[in-house]
């Protein structure tokens, strides 16, 4: 855990950083827009309007329309739910599975060896390749994207938690608990787990940004969310054939992806500086 004396100071510094605050505000606005999409979106996301195909940005359609005359702003607003929802669910799954396996590896040498070898297999793949492979096996869809991203990042959380558990196991408070006759499982969950939360939190913020990128890439390549569901990657995919005719179909969803990834990256950096300076801050 980050040392007690320095941590509040680092938190104050993170909270004072305008960039960090701007990133938090952007993310909060994006999430609120996604949650309130039913009320704030000017049109239903899949409403076809044959008369208004490929209309450029205008007061009636601030982000323009696509080849079916669907309002892009509405699709992007509903897309927040899909893209951030998939990334969030996938990383939550990865955190849960990776942390449990990491704790299990810390429970004994045999489990550590076995799980370590299995995880090495997953680390042997470039992340996007593993995600594409998993998506190809499971068939396209939002659930597939969740599992594909979770499969990529669970090994990472495994390593983070396993490393932290091994480091914490050598601490005096663990030895004291063992001497008092506390069981290994109780030590892992009650004593060690609360002390490895910081690196998990930092890694979660960073992985959420990668999760959004991978979800968009899978949908863009046609192995993730399928049309007409408005994921940001799917909207981009639908726009690529009409780049010269209607560039706004590709530009706006890409901007939304970049904005959310940027926000998570900045928040990840801020959290790293505040919670876990050992992981290499940006200062």
């Amino acid at each position: 855990m980050a040392d007690g004396r320095g941590a509040p100071g680092r938190w104050r510094r993170a909270a004072r950083s305008r960039l960090f605050l701007a990133a938090c505000a952007t993310l909060a606005a994006l999430i609120a827009a996604g949650l309130l999409a039913d009320w704030i979106a000017p049109y239903p996301p899949t409403a076809v309007d044959a008369i208004n195909m490929f209309k450029g940005p205008s007061p009636a359609h601030p982000f323009g329309t696509d080849r079916f005359g669907r309002d892009l702003l509405s699709r992007i607003l509903f897309g927040v739910r899909i893209s951030l929802g998939i990334a969030g669910a996938a990383i939550a799954m990865a955190v849960g599975a990776g942390s449990l396996l990491g704790l299990a590896a810390g429970s004994g040498r045999a489990a550590d060896q076995l799980l370590g070898r299995v995880m090495d297999v997953f680390f042997a793949f470039p992340p996007i390749l593993l995600a594409i492979g998993t998506a190809a096996v499971l068939g396209a869809g939002p659930g597939t994207a969740v599992v594909a991203i979770a499969v990529v990042y669970a090994p990472l959380f495994f390593r983070v938690v396993r490393g932290s558990v091994l480091a914490e196991s050598a601490e005096v408070y663990v030895e004291a608990a063992e001497a008092l006759g506390v069981g290994r499982l109780a030590i892992l969950f009650r004593h060690i787990l609360p002390n490895v939360v910081s690196p998990i939190v930092v890694q979660t913020a960073v992985c959420l940004s990668y999760g959004i990128l991978i979800e968009s890439a899978l949908s863009y390549l046609g192995v993730g969310v399928q049309p007409p569901t408005p994921s940001w990657g799917t909207i981009l995919n639908e726009g690529k054939e009409f780049l010269a005719l209607a560039p706004w179909v590709s530009l706006f969803p890409g901007g939304a992806i970049m904005l959310s990834v940027l926000a998570f990256n900045i928040i990840g950096d801020g959290l790293r500086d505040a919670l876990d300076p050992r992981m290499g801050g940006t200062e």
Binding site: L213, A217, S250, P253, G254, M258, V261
Partner: peptide
């Protein structure tokens, strides 16, 4: 940070 956040396909 911006460079890290750009989706390659976009």
């Amino acid at each position: 940070t911006l460079g890290l956040s750009l989706p390659a396909f976009w």
